[in-house]
Amino acid sequence: MDRKGWPGTLAVAAVLIVLAIGLPMANRGIAAADVPLPAGSRVQVGPLSDDHSRPLSVQVPDGWALNTDATALSESVALYNGSTSFQLSVILAQGATPEQLWHGLGEIEQAGGVVPRLGATMPIKTAQGVPGLAGPITVQDHTAAVAVFAAPSLGADVVVTGPPEEVMGSDISGMLSSIRFDGAGA
C-alpha cells in the first residue's frame, strides 16, 4: 500500500469523527421544543382537510415560539413566550354553545379525578365574530386563564398560563381575537 493516500484518508476519518461526535453534541445544545415563529405567522391546528389545511388557526405576535414536544397539530398547538404559554386545542363539538363548552371543561377535569374551580366568565368574540367565554380555572392550586369558542362546526379551547400581567396582556387578547375557524364567515 502506498503511503501517499494516508493523509487524505486520515483527514476524511478525522472529519467523520468530528461529525459523529460534534453533531450530536451540537444538537443537544439546541432545544428541540423551541421553534421561533416570525411575528404575524398563522399557526393551523385540527384535522387535515382534503386541501391539506386545518380548520382552526391563530396568529402570533413577535417573540412567540412553537413547543414541538407539547404540540400535536391534529389536536392542539402549544406556543410560548418566556414563561407564558398559550395552548389552543380543537373541540369536535358540532353545534355546541360556549356555555356548554365551558361546563364541559369542568366535567372533563372531574372525569380525570380532579375537581376544578371554574371562575366567573365573561363573553368574548374573535375578530371573525365567533362567540366564546373566558375566565379563570383553578386546578390543584394552579390558576390559568381559559377561553372557549363555539363555531357552528367545531369548538376550541385556549389555556393560558404565566405571570398575571402577561396572561392579561395585549399579546394574549390579540391572539384570542385572531383565532379563525374555516367556514365561520369573515
Rank of each mutant, 00 (worst) to 15 (best):
residue 102 W to Q: 00
residue 22 G to E: 09
residue 103 H to R: 12
residue 66 L to T: 00
residue 137 I to Y: 07
residue 176 L to M: 08
residue 92 L to W: 12
residue 181 F to G: 00
residue 74 S to I: 09
residue 140 Q to W: 08
residue 53 S to N: 15
residue 53 S to W: 11
residue 31 A to I: 06
residue 33 A to H: 12
residue 165 E to R: 03
residue 23 L to S: 12
residue 182 D to E: 15
residue 153 S to A: 14
residue 2 D to Q: 14
residue 184 A to R: 00
residue 182 D to R: 13
residue 81 N to D: 15
residue 77 V to A: 05
residue 129 G to W: 05
residue 112 G to Q: 10
residue 30 I to A: 10
residue 85 S to W: 02
residue 12 V to G: 13
residue 8 G to V: 09
residue 63 G to I: 02
residue 51 D to L: 08
residue 181 F to R: 01
residue 101 L to E: 06
residue 11 A to I: 10
residue 62 D to S: 12
residue 181 F to H: 02
residue 57 S to A: 15
residue 183 G to C: 04
residue 58 V to E: 04
residue 138 T to W: 07
residue 15 V to P: 07
residue 103 H to M: 12
residue 111 A to S: 13
residue 9 T to G: 14
residue 133 L to E: 08
residue 121 T to R: 01
residue 8 G to Y: 13
residue 20 A to F: 15
residue 106 G to V: 02
residue 1 M to T: 11
residue 16 L to N: 10
residue 95 G to W: 08
residue 141 D to M: 11
residue 19 L to H: 09
residue 164 P to A: 07
residue 18 V to R: 03
residue 146 V to L: 07
residue 103 H to Y: 11
residue 157 D to G: 05
residue 43 V to Q: 04
residue 90 V to T: 10
residue 46 G to H: 01
residue 59 Q to K: 13
residue 46 G to Q: 01
residue 129 G to N: 05
residue 112 G to T: 04
residue 14 A to S: 13
residue 109 E to L: 12
residue 18 V to I: 13
residue 109 E to C: 08
residue 48 L to H: 08
residue 140 Q to K: 13
residue 73 L to K: 08
residue 34 D to V: 06
residue 42 R to V: 13
residue 17 I to G: 13
residue 22 G to L: 05
residue 96 A to L: 02
residue 112 G to H: 08
residue 61 P to M: 04
residue 146 V to H: 02
residue 73 L to Q: 12
residue 7 P to V: 06
residue 78 A to S: 14
residue 71 T to A: 05
residue 166 E to T: 08
residue 138 T to R: 03
residue 29 G to E: 11
residue 151 A to C: 01
residue 71 T to L: 05
residue 4 K to N: 13
residue 186 A to I: 08
residue 51 D to K: 08
residue 114 V to I: 14
residue 173 S to C: 09
residue 121 T to W: 05
residue 81 N to H: 14
residue 57 S to N: 11
residue 186 A to P: 13
residue 112 G to R: 06
residue 3 R to A: 14
residue 185 G to M: 01
residue 133 L to K: 00
residue 141 D to S: 13
residue 8 G to I: 07
residue 90 V to H: 07
